[in-house]
């Protein structure tokens, strides 16, 4: 098994109720690559991730994860969803949610063992939630919930980590810590991260996957701020403001 791609999409088309979301998409992500996925809302990012997870089936084309169908490779994937429609009043602690990353392993039906707990504790510590392990899910802020889901994905100890907007709703200081965490994963596992926050990701990501009905892959340097600015015109003020200030500065000089 020399050099099997972590993710391989071949000529994949997917539509919801007749509307084409992804059109003849080809994409290869090599093992241990760190990929940044961008694109406008509704452009098909989450759909693409769900195809990789085997939660959706393509209308045509092939999806392979580590050379196999997504369903058979699920044990090696850690997933953090973008939105969850979870019941906020569900009586469950942060630790119990993190432990769900250990599901699907042998004997995970009745009780989790010491190794499972250790993995969950480590993951909670990595996202800065070690002190909140015994807190109720309903007591967490939006940002804490996002971090809890990251921890749950890490608890899987995956070979492929899929993060759908991990830093939304998280304040600047914690964002920086999280990106340090992601940076520490470089080379240890394959990571696909959807993010609207180029300021940080651009520092250590080599490949940018642009999803907007079709998929283009660029080296990070090629992604111009005009390109991003067009997509995130209403969203990412940081880029736009940064460019404008710079221009103003030149004008005055």
């Amino acid at each position: 098994m020399a050099n099997v791609a972590a993710i391989n999409l071949e000529n994949v088309t997917f539509s919801y109720n007749g509307g084409v979301v992804l059109d003849k998409v080809d994409l290869t992500v090599a093992e241990n690559d760190f990929v940044w996925m961008v694109g406008p809302n509704g452009g098909g990012k989450t759909t693409l991730l769900k195809l990789v997870l085997g939660l959706l089936m393509p209308d045509s084309g092939h999806v392979r994860v580590f050379g196999q169908t997504p369903k058979t490779m699920r044990g090696r994937i850690g997933y953090m969803p973008q939105q969850t429609s979870l019941d906020l009043h569900f009586p469950i602690t942060v630790m119990d949610v993190a432990l769900m990353g250990r599901l699907g392993r042998a004997g995970s039906g009745g009780r989790y063992n010491a190794a499972d707990r250790k993995a969950a504790e480590k993951a909670l510590e990595q996202v800065g939630l070690a002190d909140s392990a015994r807190q109720l899910f309903s007591e967490l802020s939006g940002g804490q919930q996002r971090r809890m889901y990251i921890a749950r994905a890490l608890t899987c100890e995956p070979d492929l980590l899929i993060l759908d907007e991990p830093t939304a709703n998280i304040d600047q200081l914690l964002q920086r810590e999280l990106y340090q965490l992601f940076e520490s994963l470089l080379g240890r596992m394959t990571v696909v991260m959807v993010s609207h926050d180029p300021a940080f990701v651009g520092q250590f990501v080599k490949q940018v996957v642009c999803v907007n009905r079709t998929v283009d892959v660029h080296p990070t340097g090629e992604v111009s701020s005009e390109m991003l600015g067009e997509w995130y015109r209403d969203r990412d003020l940081r880029i736009v403001r940064h460019d404008r200030r710079f221009t103003n500065g030149e004008d005055h000089a």
Binding site: L53, G54, L55, R74, G75, I77, Y79, P81, T84, L86, D87, F90, I92, D96, V97, L99, M100, G101, L103, G104, S108, G109, G110, R111, Y112, R152, C156
Partner: peptide
């Protein structure tokens, strides 16, 4: 319930994640 507790809990709390974990 005792035998399958964790799986029931996961399916009730977050069915999509449980599915990704191969449940």
């Amino acid at each position: 319930t005792l035998l399958l507790y964790n799986r029931f809990l996961a399916v009730c709390f977050d069915a999509e994640f449980a599915r990704v974990r191969g449940i």
